[in-house]
Amino acid sequence: MCLGIPMEILDINGYIARCGARGVEREVNLFLLQETPLKPGDHVIVHVGYALQKISPEEARSAWELFDQMLDAPGHA
């Protein structure tokens, strides 16, 4: 339940950002990062619809590789 997913910010409207990852788009709440300067193209770690922390694009990529491994793992529920 505490797992975060890296997403890229596509655009920002107030505290709501449209974020994308691997072709999936979601509304993400930025309230927990209201003191962090964010702009489209930045990456964030998202947990239950809220951005928890800004991350670098390289970190986002390596986190996605891990995620793919976990989703591909046999017996994933």
Binding site: M1, C2, G4, N29, F31, L32, H47, Y50, L52
Partner: peptide, 16 residues
């Protein structure tokens, strides 16, 4: 239910 990681978003929601 949740640990700190989840309760921070819950806090954000109830304060918004």
């Amino acid at each position: 239910a949740g640990f700190e990681t989840t309760m921070a978003p819950v806090a954000a929601m109830v304060l918004e």
